[in-house]
Simulated assay, not measured.
Amino acid sequence: MLPLSTRLISLTGALFLAAGTAGFAQSASAWNNRQCAVVLTYDDAIDADLDHVVPALDSVRLRGTFYLIGSSPVVARRLPEWRRAAQRGHELGNHALMHPCDGSLPGRGFVTPDNDLSKYTVSRAVSEVRANNVLLNAIDGKTARTFAYPCGDLTIGGVKFYDQLRTDFVAARGVRAGLQPAAQVDLTDINSYMINGQSGDYLINLVKQAQQSHTLLVFLFHGVGGGHALNVDLQAHRQLLRYLRAHEKEIWVAPMVEVAEKIRAAQAAAPAQRQP
């Protein structure tokens, strides 16, 4: 018989292997039986979304999530185009009605007094987000969608305003960078990588890391080929889309709402799977 210490080491190793296998199985289920999931998100409802991004995604048959600010003139002026984008499978996500940000934080000189989240009440923030949902429903006819925190700000006076919106959305996207397996994803504050000037090789390398670690990767774009102070070159964006298309059998690319629904189902099933 093996010494007790050797048996304990073997048992510990087997337990770690089982936990790892269970975690991989859970993520594989959440990632639609692929290596990883990639979500392409685009913030602020700008002309570049419709001029550059939607045609680029459609050309390689990929779908993304566009987080719309309800008060954006680009929403009002180009509403039929947003509706057509939704009809082709892109998600129209909620980026609040007025895009309020916390003006009390450092580097927030761009925040106007009218749209200063630090001067909002929680009820005002919640009401404006819900009003934007009404607008988005009028555009796409859908009720299931996700939310993106303007400027990544989560709280008003220390209170997480999204807590009152949990039943209004499938999930909410934040701005903290990170790759996570399905079990570790916080559906109230999903990690994302904000892109500003990085190369196509950098974007593809992030995807490769997600493939190797079997995790969720969310890209956060603003301008694509211009139109915003935060921007990515058209060629770099095109390189990323081509890589994703070429590896569609290994990478699940879908709108945030679809990926979040899969994660929610996988997380709900995990405790049941651990029952004897």
Rank of each mutant, 00 (worst) to 15 (best):
Leu68Gly: 14
Arg7Pro: 10
Arg61Glu: 15
Tyr120Asn: 03
Leu50Asn: 14
Leu220His: 14
Tyr67Trp: 01
Val134Ser: 09
Val253Ala: 00
Phe147Gly: 02
Arg145His: 01
His222Ser: 10
Val232Asn: 00
Ala138Ile: 08
Tyr202Lys: 00
Asn94Glu: 06
Arg78His: 12
Ile263Lys: 07
Pro271Thr: 01
Pro255Lys: 03
Leu234Lys: 05
Asp168Ile: 00
Ala22Ser: 07
His52Met: 13
Ser213Met: 06
Asn191Ala: 15
Val129Pro: 11
Leu17Ser: 13
Asp43His: 09
Cys36Lys: 00
Val232Gln: 00
Arg176Tyr: 05
Arg7Asn: 06
Ala229Ile: 09
Leu154His: 10
Ala272Phe: 07
Arg274Asp: 02
Leu2Met: 08
Ser59Asn: 08
Glu261Gln: 13
Phe147Leu: 05
Arg7Leu: 15
Arg264Glu: 14
Phe66Leu: 12
Glu128Asp: 13
Asn132Met: 07
Gln209His: 07
Gly13Ile: 06
Phe24Ile: 04
Lys208Gln: 11
Lys160Phe: 05
Ala266Trp: 01
Phe24Pro: 01
Glu128His: 10
Asn231Val: 04
Val257Lys: 09
Ala25Met: 15
Ala210Cys: 06
His228Arg: 08
Phe169Leu: 01
Phe16Cys: 11
Leu216Ala: 03
Ser29Ala: 15
Met256Glu: 12
Asp58Gly: 05
Tyr42Val: 06
Arg34Thr: 02
Arg264Asn: 13
Ser118Met: 14
Ala19Pro: 00
Ala96Ile: 02
Ala14Ser: 13
Arg238Lys: 03
Leu136Pro: 02
Leu62Thr: 01
Lys262His: 13
Arg88His: 13
Thr12Pro: 04
Ile190Pro: 06
Asp233Ile: 11
Gln87Val: 11
Leu17Pro: 05
Ala268Ser: 06
Pro80Gln: 04
Ile9Asp: 11
Leu57Cys: 11
Gln180Met: 10
Ser10Leu: 12
Arg130Phe: 10
Arg173Cys: 09
Leu97Lys: 10
Ser127His: 03
Ala19Ser: 08
Arg124Gln: 12
Leu40Pro: 00
Gly141Ser: 07
Ala269Trp: 02
Gly13Ser: 12
Tyr42Ile: 09
Ser59Thr: 00
Glu258Tyr: 05
Asp49Asn: 14
Pro80Thr: 00
Arg166Thr: 13
Ala266His: 04
Asp58Val: 07
Asn196Phe: 09
Val207Asp: 03
Ile139Pro: 01
Arg88Pro: 05
